[in-house]
Structure formats: structure tokens, C-alpha cells
Amino acid sequence: MRDPFNILVAGVGGQGNLVCGRVLAEASVRSGLRPVVGDTFGASRRGGSVLTHLRIGKIDWAPLIPRGEADIILGLEPLEALRAASKFAGDRTVVIVSQTKIPTVATNGETTEYPSLERIIESLNKLCKQVIVLDAEETLTHSGSMKMLNSFILGTMGALTQNPLSLNIIREALESIFGPDSNNILAFDEGARLRQ
């Protein structure tokens, strides 16, 4: 494992970024590693860009991932995945991105047009080593709602080979936070199944 191993969760306020960070930090501790978690968000409580930085290692690292140094980016939203990648992606970055858009809000009488998914994916491919695009909507309408997207994407990440935290340990961490009967566990398993 690279030390530190850097995971970045990118989303919009209310999507469950912070919970992702908590689950992965707990999983790191269960793996005998030291996690440092940093969250960045503006003054808005809902609807703004939110980043959760997770750095895993044998020692404590700085709370924010340096430019170009993300190993994995979990994109809960396409535009936010691209925003994160534009700063933190580099030659070794793997991006897992949900394709479901959250529209931006107009201000001062101007609506900026949300870019097409194709252009976002194309840019992500230029910036990163690998891009995995998820269509979570169909799956999650069965097992719960898009509120479970964070658990779903954690499942997909857990099934990646280039990841120091095992699928089982992330699942245990999720259970320790939500309880074993939560729909989040179902969503996690669905996410993991995608990669198996």
C-alpha cells in the first residue's frame, strides 16, 4: 500500500459525504491503520460542493490531500467528481462516479448550463487513470432511495483490487454505524455486486 493512501469523496451537501468519511475511517482503524479525515465545505448548509479527504497510513498525515495525489475519488455527483478531479487527480487516480446529476441553482438571474455527462466523463478520462461510471438510480429504487448512494458507491469501491481496505472490513464498518439491518447494507452489497 502507498503510505499515505488518499481517498477523496466528492458530492453535494446532503448526499452523505461525511458518513462516507466516517465509514472509511472506521474501516481503516479496523485494518490496523491510522486514518485522518478532513471535510471541506463552504458556508452553505445544503446544496454546496462538499469534499471529504481521507488519508490512510502508518502515521498521521495532513488533513487535506495535496494536488494530484488522490488514489481513489468517489464521485457522488458527476460535476462534483470533475471539480475534485481537476485539483486532486493524477496519473494513478481511479474515479468511481455516479452519473445522476444534481442541478445547480441559478443566482442573480443567470442560469449556467450544466455540462453534458459525455463531456464530464471525457474530461475525467483525460485527468485520471481509470473512470468507472455507475448508474445507481435503477438499482437503488429497488433497495431504498438515492439517499443510499453513499453506501452503494462504498460497495463498488470495496470491490476494487487497488484498495487497502477489504470489502468485508468496509461492510463491518458500515454495520457498526448503521446497524446490520439497515438498507445501507443492502445498497452496499448491490454496489459491490457491480464489480464482481
Binding site: V12, S44, G47, L79, T104, T107, P115, I120
Partner: peptide
């Protein structure tokens, strides 16, 4: 591409 999410 990177359109902002303004504070609101």
C-alpha cells in the same frame, strides 16, 4: 465545465 454551486 466547472460551473459553480453558489451559496444559497
Amino acid at each position: 465545465l466547472l460551473i459553480p454551486r453558489p451559496l444559497t
